[in-house]
């Protein structure tokens, strides 16, 4: 699987970020395993430690398994002054996890992130590829429950 993804790209180092994105996005647990790192390293002819360095530098990557849905709540100033702290508190209660943790059923991982560029609708979060704006405590609970019900 990993090698198939690699082969879509020319074996040049500048494709590394793209390849890692695709590996992570297609993995049900949204992460990049140590085994995958080795395969990419061999394919691109770069040391595994270089890849590990890249993985841990960028916030969108994870080296540990995560939930099926990744919640990324913005904590930058525009969202902060619109009350993203309250949203975070509610999300923690609703999900029963802390920041960076995954729910027991593997449905959600809660993360914080910097500006998502949708500040006109602060506070904002992304769940996977979808943006949710103008959040209120009630609204986030509704959103989470809706996703829970849909699976």
């Amino acid at each position: 699987m990993t090698l198939e993804i690699c082969r879509k790209y020319a074996p040049n180092k500048d494709n590394l970020i793209q390849i890692l994105h695709e590996i992570q996005d297609t993995h049900p647990q949204h992460y990049i395993s140590a085994a995958a790192v080795d395969i990419v390293a061999e394919y691109l002819h770069v040391p595994a430690n270089h890849i590990y360095g890249v993985l841990t530098f960028y916030t969108m990557y994870s080296t540990t398994p995560r939930g099926r849905n990744i919640i990324r709540l913005c904590e930058s100033p525009p969202c902060y002054i619109k009350g993203s702290d309250n949203i975070l508190r509610r999300l923690k209660t609703v999900l029963g996890v802390g920041t960076g943790e995954t729910t027991k059923d593997g449905a959600f991982t809660l993360e914080l992130c910097a500006c998502l560029g949708v500040c006109g609708n602060a506070p904002v979060m992304m769940i996977n590829d979808d943006v949710y704006g103008d959040l209120t405590e009630e609204k986030v609970e509704e959103i989470v429950n809706k996703i829970r019900g849909a699976k």
Binding site: S76, P77, P78, A114, C115, G117, V118, C119, G120
Partner: peptide
């Protein structure tokens, strides 16, 4: 574009 509060380029 990563500056908090900026989304003009988007």
């Amino acid at each position: 574009e990563g500056e908090p509060g900026t989304f003009k380029d988007r």
